[in-house]
Write a protein that binds this DNA or RNA. Structure first.
Lengths: 151, 151
DNA sequence: TATGAAAGTTTTAAATA
DNA sequence: TATTTAAAACTTTCATA
C-alpha cells in the first residue's frame, strides 16, 4: 500500500492524539471529513493503523519497577526457541521482547510492582526454559517513553 | 487517589481498546454508563489515564531498524546530565530512554529507517554530548511489544 | 446509580465537481 | 476519480430524578 504525504499527516495527528475528531484531523491536514475518513479506514484495513490504546500511569498503579533484561543462551534449536517465545508472549509483565543480532541473544523490558515481583518472574522464566546468562538492568528513571514514530 | 477493582477493570478495557464506547465498557465491567463515565473522568483528571494513541505498523512505514543502545559515561555532573537528557528528549528517533542503576548508565530504544540513519543519529549524539562507551544492540525480530500493564 | 435529553461524532449514501 | 453535502445511527456529556 502506498502512503502519501496527507496519509502521513493523518497518522502523525492520530499517534499524537487518537481522540481527535475527524473534523479536527481534517482541518489539521487541510482536507475534509469524508476523504480523511476513507484514508483512515483504508490504513486500518491494511493494518498500518493498529489498536487504539491509552497510556496509563504505571507508577500510580503500583508498577514501580522496570527492568531491561539481557539474555544469552546456548540453545539455538527450533524447539527451545518455540518454548521460549511462548513463555515471553504469555507473561504479561514482559512489555517488550526482541531477538538480537550478535553476542546477546534477547532483550526484554519487564514491568513489575517491585524487585520481589521481578525475582518471581525470573525464577519462573528460568524454570520454564534453560538460559545461559541473564543480566538485569534496573531503571532508576524513565526519561522518555513514546511509541510515536518520527513521521 | 484510591483505585478499586471496578476502576482497574475499566482501565484494563481501555488499555486493550480505547475505542470502546461507554456502553460497551459499562457492560464489560458490570455497571452502567454514568458511573463508568465519572470514574474515567476522575482518573483522567488525576493523570492515571493519559494520552490516547494508535499503534502504527513501523515496518510498513519504513522504520525497519530498531536498536537498543547501552551507554556508559564518565561524566556525572549536573550540567552534562542536563544537556544529555535534553538531547534525548529532542530526538524523535529515541522512543525510550532510561537512567539505570549499576554499571551501564543509560539505555535507549532507537527506531530508525535503516542502519545508516542509526549511524547519523549516533554521530549527532556523540557530537552533542561526551559519552564514554556505547554499545548498540540490533533487533532482528520484535517478538512482543505492548504498553499494557498487567492489571 | 439510573434515566433521558441535548450536543456532537461517526458512518454511509447520494450528489457534484 | 476525488470531494462535498446530507442524513441516519450512535456516543458523549451532563442535568435531573
Amino acid at each position: 500500500m502506498r502512503i502519501d504525504s496527507t496519509d502521513r499527516k493523518i497518522l502523525d495527528q492520530l499517534q499524537r492524539d487518537a481522540s481527535l475528531s475527524l473534523d479536527e484531523i481534517a482541518k489539521a491536514v487541510g482536507s475534509s471529513k469524508t476523504p480523511v475518513w476513507n484514508r483512515i479506514r483504508k490504513m486500518r484495513d491494511a493494518g498500518i493503523i493498529g489498536a487504539q490504546t491509552v497510556r496509563l500511569d504505571a507508577e500510580a498503579l503500583g508498577f514501580e519497577a522496570c527492568f531491561f533484561v539481557l539474555i544469552r543462551t546456548s540453545e539455538h534449536e527450533a524447539e527451545w526457541q518455540k518454548a521460549f517465545l511462548k513463555a515471553l508472549k504469555e507473561r504479561p509483565e514482559v512489555q517488550e521482547a526482541h531477538r538480537l543480532a550478535g553476542d546477546i541473544d534477547y532483550i526484554l523490558k519487564v514491568r513489575v510492582k517491585n524487585a520481589r515481583a521481578y525475582d518471581a518472574f525470573y525464577q519462573a522464566l528460568i524454570s520454564e526454559v534453560k538460559v545461559h546468562n541473564v543480566t538485569a538492568l534496573l531503571s532508576m528513571e524513565e526519561i522518555k517513553s513514546t511509541t510515536a514514530l518520527p513521521l
